[in-house]
Nucleic acid binder design. Sequence first.
DNA 1: AGGCTCTCTCTTTTT
DNA 2: GAGAGAGCCT
Length: 703
Amino acid sequence: MHRARNTKSKRAGGARRDARTPRRARHDRFDLGSLNAPQLEAVLHDDGPMLVLAGAGSGKTRVIIYRITRLVRDGVPPGQILGVTFTNKAAREMRERLTELAGPRGAEVHLSTFHALGLRIIREEREAAGLRAGFCIYDTGDQLSLVRDMMRQTRVADRRLDPGRVLEMILSAKRGRLAGVEVDHEGDEYDVAAAELYPRYVAQMRAFNAIDFDDLILRAQDVLAQPLVRERWQARFSYMLVDEYQDTSPDQLTLLRALAGAKRNICVVGDDDQSIYGWRGAAAGNILSFGKAFPGTREIILDQNYRSTQYILQAANAVIQNNAVRKAKRLWSAGGDGEAVEVVACGTGDDEAAFVVDRIQQLLYEGARADEIAILYRANVQSRAFEELLALERVPFRVVGGQAFFERKEVRDAIAYLAVAQNPLDEVALRRIVNSPPRGIGLTSLERLVQHGENTRKGLWAALVQAGSVDGLSVSAVAGAAQLVGVLAPRARRLRAAAAGELSRQCQELFDQLGLRDAILTADDAPGISAKRLENLDEVVRSIEMFERQSPAALLLAEYLRSSALTQLPGEDGEDRQARVTLMTLHAAKGLEFRYVFLVGIEEDALPHRKTLEEGGDLAEERRLCYVGMTRARERLWITWARRRLRYGRLQERAASRFIAELPVGAGVTTHEHDTSGVSEEEQDQMAQDFFSRMRDRLGIDD
DNA sequence: AGGCTCTCTCTTTTT
DNA sequence: GAGAGAGCCT
């Protein structure tokens, strides 16, 4: 095995990269000879369950694509193959690479997210799933609105309880298919509130003909519990492949088992060391006990890494091996050692930002592209200091994630109008739009209408239709209701029946008639803002057009609404040709790779996050997060922390993360100080060395 | 109904 | 220190 030189020129680095990243090659040609032994074994495996433990950068996706292509080449009808991913993005990527490798037949393979798969089953088995036609899907925002409304209405919890937390409790009871929420501690307001609201939540969802994201999995599971239905679906898919298996929940596993049936041709691919979504229901245990769920499982380990240098892998391995419960594997690479991983102790948060931005500028000066560089952190707030300095220094950058997407009120409103047109029982949507744009129906009037709707058992929409006979409404409210009903009712039927080609036009007309554009223009936002919001509104109509073009004609509106709940509308800067430095959370970075990576703010309370430590959370998951971050780096990795940091408005003393102490300093990892507050270099070095020997002592690690 | 001030908290996030 | 949300005031 040749050892690439560590220090030499960019050219060497470039050539080496080409040689060892065949999986990213532009035109991947089907060539079994390009696979390593375990990869080949996974691709050639015939029938029966298989678990592929794919370490970071081990060519995981490529194995999936190759396996599918191989099955198709061996005569399996592509329509009989089901590939399941977690995100739309992953599904899209897989589709592209598959069509490239397998040709047009690759397009016939079913690739979908878990939730889209659930929806498909529920849609086709709607009655068995206990739903009426035109049912709608509630996203997290809708769920929260519902919980807030319920809290207001029942008064059970009108004090300052966090609706999100109440919702979380309701959902976890629902996931566990419990009859109710248990009141563990007599006095606990949250227990009491959740116990009271749980049955109401279920009843409301039923009344609104709505299901939430969890229901997509749970109801599909219910439907498949019926033998005839199950057999039908089992017959449809003869081979299943599941990506990112470490992120599956127990419910998803149940669904998979039902689909796999007696054939058990199920291949799951994942990495227990990259399980970082335990907090949202993923069961890392799924991957560890896959062999129990499917006896006779063939287990394959992909531990050859094609991404990072030896030093980076050694450092990452050293950290992750401190996790007690994991599948033993150790990433290795045929590449060279590369440059040492640098741990940088900074004086303050400002020093840290200065160091990172300075290094970035140096890299750019040496010819690196900005999009080969990433700054990764635990929590979104940590991006601030880096954003500011990068902006000041005019280094192009983009911040991934945050919220932004969510709060496009005008988009949500427009969609809510369509949702009501489709399903007048959808009261979350109806409440949202009833007074937006303003029609004189304030909170008091709305509550009266809701009450009337409940009393008559006909719902809010019916109450609006007969607003004239509802007690205690103001004249303006009655007029407002009449106006809303007058516009929406006659259009609703035509919208529901609209075929491809007319739906988008009709929506546009509806929006105009409702005065959505005017409302945006009248609102006294800054001119730039209202222009943006108008654009967003147009974007809605455009997305409907897109949908019309690629969908079969029947029930277009209902399908559009459901699919828009499952796929985020495209962000603003989809196509951006300029190379930019990427700033994002460690979570968001999973699955990506960069030539140069800065892991910043690696301090106690931040990387093992305070909350995890306090709330008896999962320290191992924090360590995996660190591992995920480190393994994003191809060539160079910096890990930085600050001794003092301005937080919550005050200067805080900080300690390096315990994960830093787990690094093999001296063996491909170097440390140094970056403190501008006037300490001499010798002192700084001494401090760093002292720090590490103290840390090692404390943790009982040999030098 | 809307705007203002006070108070509280301060992960991660896809579907 | 900053943003969100509740409550109070006009």
